[in-house]
C-alpha cells in the first residue's frame, strides 16, 4: 500500500518522468526509433540502387559509354568539388547507411528473438500476409551484406575480379559474368535483393507512418514494382553477357 502521494491533492497529477532524453537518443533507444533508422537508411540505399541501375544499364550502349560514365562520376561537382570527392561523399553516406541499417537490424533481431523464446509446437500454414519475402528479411539481409563485400572487391577495387583493370568497368563486368560463380553469386544476390526490397519498401512506409488504409494497396504495388524492376534490371546484365549481347 505504499504510494508516492502528490503534494497537492485534487490537481491533475504529473505521473510521468519530467525530462525526456534528446530526440536522437529517444530514437536510438526505442524499437520504433531504431526501425525508423532502418527505414530511412534503407530508402537511401534504395535510392542509390535505382541510380546505380540506371548507370549500369549503360553497359548496353557499349564500352565507351559505360567507361565514360564511370569516369564522369569521378568528376561530378568539379570544379567546386575536387576530383572523386562526390564519389567518396556518396560512399561515405552509403557506408553510414549500411552500417546503421546493419547494426539496427542486428540489435532489433536479437531483441525480437529474445521476445519469442519458445516456438510453437504446431506449425500452421503461411497466411497470405506472411509472404516469403517477409520471412527471409534477416537471412536475405545477411546474404546481401556478404554480396556487398564481394561486389566491392570485385568491381570497385577489382581485387577479386578475373580481369581487374581500374577505370575499365565495362571489361571488368564482362569478365565477372564470364565466370560461372560470378553469375551464380550475382543471380542469388539479386533475387535476395528483390525479396528484400519487396518487404523492405512496404515495411519502411509502415514504419515511417506513410501507410494509411487507403494507401495500403498502392504502397504494396509500388513495393512489388520496385522489386521487380530492380531485380530484372540488374539481372539483365549477366544475362546479356551470358547470351553474348554484351561482350
Amino acid at each position: 500500500m505504499e504510494t508516492a502521494l502528490p503534494t497537492v491533492l485534487g490537481m491533475a497529477l504529473a505521473t510521468r518522468t519530467d525530462r525526456r532524453p534528446s530526440p536522437a537518443r529517444l530514437l536510438w533507444r526505442s524499437t520504433i526509433g531504431k526501425k525508423a533508422v532502418m527505414a530511412v537508411t534503407g530508402l537511401i540505399m534504395l535510392l542509390y540502387l535505382v541510380s546505380h541501375l540506371l548507370g549500369n544499364l549503360k553497359v548496353f550502349a557499349g564500352p565507351d559509354e559505360m567507361n565514360g560514365y564511370a569516369h564522369w562520376l569521378r568528376t561530378v561537382g568539379e570544379p567546386f568539388l575536387g576530383h572523386e570527392w562526390f564519389v567518396w561523399l556518396a560512399r561515405c553516406v552509403l557506408l553510414a547507411a549500411v552500417g546503421l541499417h546493419g547494426v539496427s537490424a542486428y540489435q532489433l533481431s536479437r531483441r525480437d528473438l529474445a521476445a519469442r523464446p519458445v516456438p510453437y509446437a504446431a506449425r500452421r500454414r503461411a497466411t497470405a500476409r506472411d509472404s516469403y519475402a517477409t520471412r527471409t528479411m534477416r537471412w536475405g539481409g545477411v546474404i546481401l551484406a556478404l554480396f556487398l563485400v564481394w561486389h566491392i572487391l570485385d568491381l570497385t577495387t577489382g581485387t577479386v575480379n578475373p580481369r581487374g583493370r581500374a577505370g575499365h568497368p565495362y571489361e571488368n563486368i564482362v569478365a565477372t559474368f564470364s565466370t560461372w560463380y560470378g553469375n551464380a553469386i550475382y543471380v542469388v544476390a539479386m533475387l535476395a535483393l528483390g525479396l528484400h526490397v519487396r518487404h523492405g519498401f512496404w515495411s519502411a512506409a509502415q514504419t515511417l507512418g506513410v501507410n494509411r488504409p487507403r494507401r495500403e494497396r498502392a504502397l504494396k504495388a509500388t513495393a512489388n514494382a520496385l522489386a521487380l524492376v530492380l531485380t530484372a534490371g540488374f539481372l539483365s546484365i549477366p544475362l546479356a553477357v551470358m547470351t553474348g549481347v554484351v561482350s
Partner: peptide, 27 residues
C-alpha cells in the same frame, strides 16, 4: 519485440484492428 511489419497481428486479431493503425502510431 519490435515490429517487422509481418502483419501476423492484424490477421490474428479477433476484432479486426487494422494494420495501418501501427503506421499511424509510428507517425
Amino acid at each position: 519485440g519490435g515490429c517487422t511489419n509481418t502483419g501476423e497481428c492484424a490477421t490474428a486479431c479477433p476484432k479486426g484492428v487494422p494494420l495501418p493503425s501501427i503506421a499511424a502510431m509510428n507517425r
